[in-house]
């Protein structure tokens, strides 16, 4: 059973996330071996840039979309335990996480729609299609983890893995979760909504601070999505010798490193092809996995 943390943790959480996101982005730039990809420098470059607006743009919606993305990431992280303590271990934490992560749909769509520009609108469309493709198997995957622990509380899921990690006996759910973690953060092979082929897609018209907040928010969301795989499938803070928080950090870093590495090995996945895989292969697979887990739980 996870304990709750003091109130100051609420204030610290965003900063921790930003730090981890910056670290991940640096690692990504390092692998790319591209001196132009330095995230710190990029942030500074954009900071001195002025904001711009587009003709007949819906300012309010654009701003809302831009700001909503990092907010959704931070809110989703509330149920994320460091070791065995999370900011708030809600009784239905898994549902909360799923709901907050789905806010990103609105965020990207609004940011893509707002500027009244074709390429950015295409980016927005693409994310909705992406949502339709990844969300179904994704929800089944996280449901499977909840099923294994017989609880929607993230703390209970961690406790249920004091022996065997869920990743070991629910491998399909784990892999599907990792795929959808990249999908929900429209990152890596799933970055078509902000793809280079649409000149930045939903982010094409964003400059200066707007751009930092939106693309930074995407990194936050990615970090949170990847980090949630640790309590759900990799035993959370459980591990020998080291304290719980250290295990959480180690495992999170390992998942992030794996995903960053994968990104360099594969081309971008277009939803028009992926949706078929997601619905015809991944969804039945996830259902089958849930069925197996359910049988095990019933016979325990």
């Amino acid at each position: 059973m996870a304990e709750t943390t003091p109130l100051w943790a609420v204030a610290v959480l965003p900063f921790v996330l930003v730090l981890v996101a910056l670290g991940t982005a640096h690692f990504d730039a390092l692998l790319a071996a591209d001196p132009a990809a330095n995230p710190g420098r990029e942030v500074l470059r954009l900071l001195v840039q002025q904001r711009r607006r587009t003709n007949a743009a819906d300012e309010l919606l654009t701003r809302l979309g831009v700001v909503l993305l990092p907010v959704a990431a931070v809110l989703a992280a509330v149920v994320l335990p460091l070791g065995f303590r999370s900011v708030s271990d809600l009784a239905d934490g898994i549902v909360w996480f799923n709901a907050m992560e789905a806010l990103a749909w609105a965020a990207v769509w609004l940011a893509g729609w707002g500027p009244n520009s074709t390429l950015s609108l295409i980016g927005g469309y693409r994310f909705l299609a992406q949502g339709l493709a990844y969300e179904l198997p994704h929800m089944l995957a996280i449901t499977t983890a909840a099923l294994g622990a017989e609880s929607l509380r993230v703390g209970d899921v961690v406790d249920a893995q004091s022996g065997l990690w869920f990743a070991v006996w629910m491998p399909a759910a784990f892999v599907i979760y990792l795929l959808s973690a990249m999908g929900m953060a429209f990152w890596g092979p799933f970055d078509q909504p902000v793809g280079r082929d649409v000149a930045g897609g939903a982010a094409a018209e964003l400059s200066g601070v707007d751009r930092i907040v939106f693309l930074g928010g995407r990194w936050l969301l990615f970090v949170v999505a990847a980090a949630v795989s640790v309590p759900l499938f990799l035993g959370g803070g459980h591990g020998p010798l080291l304290p719980g928080w250290a295990w959480t950090l180690l495992k999170t870093a390992a998942v992030l490193a794996l995903l960053v590495w994968v990104r360099r090995r594969v081309p971008g996945v277009r939803m028009e092809r992926y949706v078929e895989l997601a619905w015809v292969v991944l969804t039945p697979l996830a259902i089958l996995q849930a069925l197996v887990v359910a049988l095990v739980v019933l016979n325990r």
Partner: peptide
Amino acid sequence: GEHDGHDTHDSHSGPDTHS
């Protein structure tokens, strides 16, 4: 940033596609 008139301008000049 400040001048509306100018800003509206930008819109069009976005990445080649504009309205």
